[in-house]
Design a protein around this nucleic acid. Structure first.
Length: 880
DNA sequence: CAATCGCATGGCA
DNA sequence: CTGCCATGCGATT
């Protein structure tokens, strides 16, 4: 745009720009107007409008200081804020007010629902267009979200430029880039008066002029600032618009998305400027953050204040374009969410992050919620039921009926769904990103951020798979997801993430990252034609074993080259050399150098490989071969590639987290767990599947189960002991005949000890076990010497108050009452648990046993476990 | 009996 | 310690 010409962007000027043109206002496309030195200085000094627009319309006076402010051009958009009560306020005053203003919260209602009259919306857009005069921009200001029937709408109409960073609210943290100034409405846009003091806060524009955001730079940037003061005043009545996305079109070679925030001058940030939040959040740094925080009205009553990073929209221009299509609509990225197994499952319920739901969806007071019309990127409309469930004094928001949509989009766990608002229609748009395909575009964003020095994500967690495509030090290969089941591999173990959420993937690396999960890797292995595999089951996993080596598919490695461009590496089918192709290139499964349309020099196999894959994939220390892939016999032919994959896969899956960058991929079992997770949930095969294990089995699963069992039993014992104690007391109080043997039982807290001291009693309980010395057996005695991984002692434990423990206690009590002479029952029962515990003392702690693996096959599911317990109870009572 | 619904549970931040 | 939310699971249809 501005750079296309050598003439000062200021059409009133026409002077030639210098080699290093001065940055002016942010253009819609994310770039900055390039001005000649003179205009640049004028602009920087905040005198631009005074100089060039003095006779233009749109001058208004600051309601606070009376200073004239030009409100009608792009160069001054950030020079003022719209007051809720009408009128405008110069940024200087706004800042002051903001600083002094209490942190008001936004009225929930206002927030979203208020539909912005088309007229206004159009106006905004038009104005923007007019002002900016730049080319098409994917994102434009996006006013309100829903068209829901909320009130407050009235206000909107008057605010042509009302822009709000929705994200802002959500993100408490920061990033914001956008200015929210505008909550205030300008009564008459055309009426704005000038004031020369736009300069407030303007700062030096970054030299790089990149689109990168540097929110930081702006001290008082308008972004925040804004609104606050006065705006808050009437929050209750002021509707908020979605934030304007200042999304810059991919201007950089690498497709970076220019984010406007960066150069926003404090005073100049255009209200309408679109901002791409996805990037923004990543890039915010302290400075920007601070300001933003201070300035923004964030926390709303409904708690939309902060949106977890994982939900930050990370749309790419491609995404946006896809979503918006060729329409002129403005898209406001709202949030995104990685689909969990549940979300992608057949239940058809998509759990919505609470904050997001409350911030961007219409407020609902009834659990039933309301139907929400959502449009997908193809323009197809879906109607979901947006509702919530009461949950722990809170709410759990869900979108029901998403199955058709999910299926239509062919999404699975690990994929990301994005929600945006399309303006001026106000439609809610749902987009998605496949975990695997993910793109380079996302990378771009990252690259951009990194490139601009914006900390964007430095440690920001990228919940989306987008990051998966990056290659980081540890090396992962982004590959195509393969089936639904691959969801298990979608989330990677994050063990080493440390404090970061395991659910999120945190990519701090600037490096590209190659990721590959075994399942994905498997997906790349294609059986030789006409080769029928023999299926082998190993630890519950079915492996297809081929006599001949599988053919390695054409995985590509997304990366960012040293030029900062997003590219992907693809291996030639013939020569196995890796070639660099554009990240967005769609490559056939069979690809050869001849298909390298992007680099003629390397379109032949004889051409040397540009770079070693190893360069992209740092050596990893993991040696463990991917178990999952071991079944596949590999041939030398593909060894190279396979080794790479192996390595990557190992890193990704079996690396046990060492040095692995975390990335989160959902497992089919439990999204919270990553491949490599050793918890029982993850290590066990799907419920009902898998081989039976013997008691003596020491496999991971068994050990874990034992450990877990032990832990659970201990807890249970404790609870029972307590209950027992209580019942004993009651009995003592109620019963006239004290129980002779009760002494031990009388001391509830010492039950476990007691248990240890009364082996005989153990026997009573562990009838099924023939060997007392065998703790394992005794412990499992209730299950007749079998370890059922399906058991969910924990659950039992939980239920115990009402079912198990409780019933046991009751049984005991009953027995005691009925058979006073056999007062040892209680202790027996208790001890039985103790015995069990002892038997299980072979591990530390365990995790909840999920659906289950049945080691011995006698119990296929948790329910049976419970049943398994019943006999014990029965026997107890019988004994009694 | 399967599918759904709605709440409960518990891991995690 | 609290809140979020993925998932479990009983209840209902």
């Amino acid at each position: 745009m501005s750079s296309s010409s050598k003439i000062c962007f200021n059409k009133e000027c026409k002077e030639l720009k210098s080699d290093r043109p001065r940055k002016g206002w942010l253009l819609r496309g994310g770039e900055f107007a390039e001005l000649c030195d003179r205009c640049g200085v004028i602009f920087d000094e905040g005198r631009f409008c005074d100089t060039y627009h003095i006779n233009a319309s749109g001058w208004r006076c600051c309601e606070s200081c009376g200073k004239r402010v030009h409100c009608g051009c792009i160069a001054s958009v950030n020079a003022f804020t719209l007051l809720d009560a009408g009128g405008i306020e110069c940024m200087t005053c706004a800042r002051k007010n903001v600083l002094s203003a209490p942190t008001a919260s936004w009225p929930p209602s206002l927030f979203y629902q208020t539909p912005l009259p088309e007229r206004i919306k159009d106006f905004s857009v038009k104005n923007w267009t007019q002002l900016a005069g730049s080319g098409p921009v994917p994102w434009r200001q996006a006013p309100s979200l829903f068209n829901s029937p909320m009130s407050h709408t009235e206000l909107r109409p008057k605010v042509p430029y009302e822009v709000e960073l929705t994200m802002d609210r959500i993100n408490a943290s920061e990033r914001l880039v956008a200015t929210t100034l505008e909550k205030r409405k300008v009564e008459d846009f055309s009426e704005r008066l000038v004031n020369g003091g736009l300069k407030t806060g303007s700062r030096e524009i970054p030299e790089n002029g990149n689109a990168g955001l540097n929110l930081d730079e702006q001290p008082s940037s308008c972004l925040n600032k804004s609104q606050q003061s006065s705006s808050f005043k009437d929050d209750s009545s002021t509707p908020h618009f979605g934030l304007a996305v200042s999304y810059a079109s991919p201007n950089e070679t690498n497709g970076q998305i220019g984010v406007s925030g960066s150069h926003l001058r404090p005073s100049l940030q255009p209200p309408l400027m679109k901002q791409f939040h996805g990037n923004l959040h990543n890039g915010v740094d302290s400075l920007g953050e601070t300001q933003v925080r201070n300035g923004r009205p964030r926390v709303d009553p409904r708690g939309r204040g902060q949106l977890l990073p994982r939900y930050w929209p990370r749309f790419t221009d491609q995404d946006l374009q896809q979503i918006s299509g060729d329409s002129n609509s403005v898209i406001t990225p709202l949030f995104e969410k990685m689909l969990s197994a549940s979300d992608a499952g057949r239940i058809g319920r998509l759990v919505l992050p609470k904050k997001c739901a409350e911030a961007y969806f219409p407020p609902i007071s009834q659990p039933e919620g309301l139907p929400l019309k959502v449009q997908d990127s193809k323009g197809k409309e879906w109607i979901f039921q947006f509702r919530f469930w009461p949950n722990n004094n809170s709410r759990m928001y869900v979108l029901e009926g998403v199955t058709p949509c999910i299926q239509n989009m062919q999404l699975q766990a690990g994929d990301i769904v994005t929600f945006s608002r399309l303006e001026p229609e106000g439609k809610l748009v749902m987009g998605f990103r496949k975990a695997s395909t993910n793109q380079a575009s996302d990378q771009d964003n990252e690259a951009t951020k990194a490139g601009t020095g914006v900390s964007t994500n430095g440690d920001a967690e990228l919940a989306d798979p987008s990051s998966w495509s990056k290659v980081d030090k540890s090396g992962y290969i982004a590959t195509e997801a393969i089936g639904v089941k691959s969801s298990i591999s979608r989330k990677r173990k994050n063990t080493t993430l440390g404090s970061k959420s395991k659910r999120l993937k945190i990519e701090n690396e600037d490096l590209i990252e190659l990721k590959l999960t075994w399942e994905e890797a498997q997906g790349l292995l294609r059986p030789p034609p006409n080769n029928v595999p023999s299926v082998v089951v190993i630890e519950g996993y079915e492996f297809e074993e081929y006599e001949e080596a599988p053919i390695l598919g054409k995985p590509t490695i997304f990366a960012t080259d040293n030029m900062g461009e997003k590219i992907q590496w693809i291996q030639c089918e013939d020569c196995s050399k890796w070639r660099k192709v554009p990240a967005n290139a769609l490559l056939p499964s069979k690809w050869t150098c001849s298909g390298n349309l992007w680099d003629p020099e390397r379109s032949v196999c004889s051409a040397a490989q540009e770079m070693q894959l190893e360069d992209l994939i740092p050596p990893c220390n993991n040696s463990a071969p991917p178990k999952k892939m071991k079944a596949a016999k590999q041939e030398p032919d593909n060894v190279e590639a396979l080794e790479g994959l192996d390595t990557l896969a190992n890193l990704a899956i079996l690396g046990e987290g060492e040095a692995l960058p975390a990335s989160s991929q959902a497992t089919t079992k439990h999204p919270r767990h990553r491949p490599g997770c050793s918890c029982i949930v993850c290590i066990q095969p799907p419920s009902g599947k898998g081989p039976k294990h013997k008691q003596t089995c020491t496999c991971n699963v068994c050990l874990t189960v034992k450990r877990r069992f032990h832990t659970l039993m201990l807890r249970r014992e404790k609870k029972q002991s307590e209950k027992e104690a209580e019942s004993s007391r009651k009995k003592q109080q109620q019963q006239k005949q004290p129980l002779p043997d009760k002494s031990a039982d009388d001391e509830p807290l010492s039950c476990s000890k007691t248990g240890n001291n009364s082996p005989s009693e153990k026997k009573v309980v562990s009838e099924g076990s023939d060997d007392d010395s065998n703790r394992m057996k005794s412990s499992t005695s209730p299950f007749k010497g079998q370890i059922d991984l399906n058991i969910q002692p924990e659950r039992e434990d939980e239920l115990s108050p009402g079912s198990d423990s409780g019933s046991i206690v009751r049984l005991i009590q009953d027995a005691t009452d009925k058979y006073p002479s056999q007062q040892r029952l209680p202790s027996s029962v208790i001890n039985s648990n103790t015995a069990l515990n002892e038997g299980m003392q072979c591990g530390e702690t365990g995790e909840k046993i999920g659906s289950g693996i049945t080691l011995d096959g006698s119990h296929q599911d948790a329910d049976e476990d419970d049943h398994g317990i019943l006999p014990m109870k029965a026997s107890i009572s019988a004994n009694g």
